[in-house]
Nucleic acid binder design. Structure first.
Lengths: 330, 330
DNA sequence: CTGAAAGCGCTTACAG
DNA sequence: CTGAAAGCGCTTACAG
């Protein structure tokens, strides 16, 4: 392994000159070419630790996720990693397994490890988070949730909720059910529901009942079973694709056909939604692009550049087979 | 930020003593307690870069994956990360997007970054890989594939293929089709198929046709359509769950019912297989446990300990709804 | 058991 | 534009 001293000796200059060349300092044109040739030839690459020890900063972006096993997280990570690579940065992933205390711990630990920035995919932001953000000097970017005190990148959940609500109403549905999650998750638990409510408010003569369940397909299947007790909506709007998958399963278990007996929609645009029987109508969120944008944003932040406090990521309605058209009398 | 010098001064000793304390060198009992108290109180933690600069090694395990968006990869990563945490190590994930050249590049790059070890989830091992393994001094552990020259951890693909073959034959099926992938992937393309073949060989009067497709659900759907042209198996054995999902989709498209008209099995035990209609009979591979074992093994390797060249991870058949019993005449 | 010193491979004022 | 020197925060022989 060559060091900067080797290169300096080979070039007949001081280490500082080599260092300056490497970091874009002022070096004569002649010297530049000489050094370029030598570095090329020797395959020299600077030792990252020595750099970090001085510069007090690494080329790693810490990424904190609540779990690793969902389409949403995978896609977002893929986007982050792809973009980071372009900037010669690495992604240091840590999984909190939904444990908030661990999340806080990791925030401090990553800061100590001097990552250049932290991308946080957290289901909720608590006071402990806020305190951590303040105490560490590393820039933080929230993805999927927003908070006024932190830079955030979110899917436009309210608008998306509105759009799917409007779509389902346009298809003629008037007896609706919304199967969501707890309000501690602002983006999914509140925003999507509020957007949907807004669409309902604008329409005429809708009956809507709201239900709550968990994030797993199994919980959702049970949650959907609860929906079907006593209330018979013509359409069930689910707050995530996994919830919709559980709901479809529950419907079949009840002997109901989708969409003949009940229409179901999801939220996310997971790959599997296309392959289901019936293929699921859903709101596609662009997770990979969001990840790329997040990476770009955190790098800007790490470089001391300014970015808007809040960035929105887009969505689109994907109409497939799980929604039936209903005739609206009158 | 406190440094080792601060602690030394506070304790009235030399830095070397503090360092020795930290690294388990010989320190008097009295001094140990004094230092423990001071470190506790100041919240001192050593600077990782300075450590790495000297020790020439980090507490990071590089993990190379072909993509991020599959149940298999997610679960394996979760297992790796969980276990690594127990050993105070971090997971540095890099996604190659199925690009072999990138894979090689990253191998060298991680070595340069002085990761303590590398876990490689690669679909295939080429000569370029082997050369890289030899040139870098960092220990490497292969997961999912095996090679005699490298430490490997694999699912017992041959046995698993045998088991599902045996199962399907026990259910009375005799007209079979196997929908697999290319042989460049040894574990999935060869081993699973060979195990299956062995089961068929042991049975009487089976007719089997072999087909090949890609890894995505979409490719598999097309691949399955090709199967159904001219040949009408009573059971279709798929080399992965994603392929099985595509096959089910294709069957429905053809107006065939699963399992009434055709039985289908998968391979993997993805979460979604339980929620499909019908729920998929499959070979469950224990990805998360495999990840944990992989992490434990690479750490041993990094510490210079010896481990067996080849470790097997277990599997189990999960019988669900996608396979019908057939009556075998006499 | 403990300490002084050198050195890991860089960067960064400071002179020139 | 270039170089000598100090220093980043550790660890590790080597003495004592």
């Amino acid at each position: 392994m060559k060091t900067i001293a080797d290169i300096a000796k080979l070039a007949g200059v001081a280490k500082s000159t080599v260092s300056r060349y490497l970091n874009g300092g002022s070096v004569s044109e002649k010297m530049k070419q000489r050094l370029e040739a030598i570095i090329e030839e020797t395959g020299y690459t600077p030792n990252t630790f020595a750099q970090s020890l001085k510069a007090k900063r690494t080329n790693m972006i810490g990424t904190i996720v609540p779990h690793l096993d969902s389409y949403e997280i995978s896609q977002t990570l893929t986007g982050i990693d792809n973009e980071l690579r372009k900037w010669n940065c690495h992604m240091l992933v840590t999984n909190t397994n939904q444990n908030i205390e661990r999340e806080i711990e990791i925030l401090y630990m990553l800061a100590k490890q001097r990552v250049a920035g932290i991308i946080l995919l957290a289901p909720q932001i608590t006071d402990a988070h806020l305190q951590a953000f303040n105490e560490i000097t590393v820039p933080v970017l929230l993805v999927g949730q927003q908070h006024e005190e932190v830079h955030s990148l979110v899917h436009n959940d309210e608008e998306a909720g509105y759009a799917i609500g409007k779509y389902i109403i346009e298809q003629g549905h008037r007896r609706l059910a919304f199967l969501g999650v707890g309000e501690e998750n602002e983006a999914i638990g509140i925003k999507r529901k509020e957007g949907f409510k807004r669409a309902v408010r604008e329409a005429n003569g809708c009956e809507v009942h709201f239900f709550e369940t968990g994030f797993t397909m199994e919980e959702a299947a049970e949650g959907a079973l609860a929906v079907f007790e006593g209330y018979f909506p013509s359409a069930l709007i689910c707050a995530t694709d996994d919830i919709a998958i559980g709901a479809v399963k529950a419907a079949y278990k009840k002997g109901m056909h989708v969409p003949a007996n009940i229409s179901v929609t999801g939220f996310g645009g997971y790959a599997i939604t296309k392959m289901m029987n019936p293929a699921l109508t859903t709101v596609k969120l662009h997770f990979m692009e969001a990840g790329e944008t997040a990476a770009r944003n955190i790098i800007k932040l790490a470089n001391g550049e300014d970015i808007p406090k809040l960035t929105y990521s887009n969505f689109e309605i994907i109409a497939r087979e799980s929604v039936d058209k209903r005739f609206v009398p009158g």
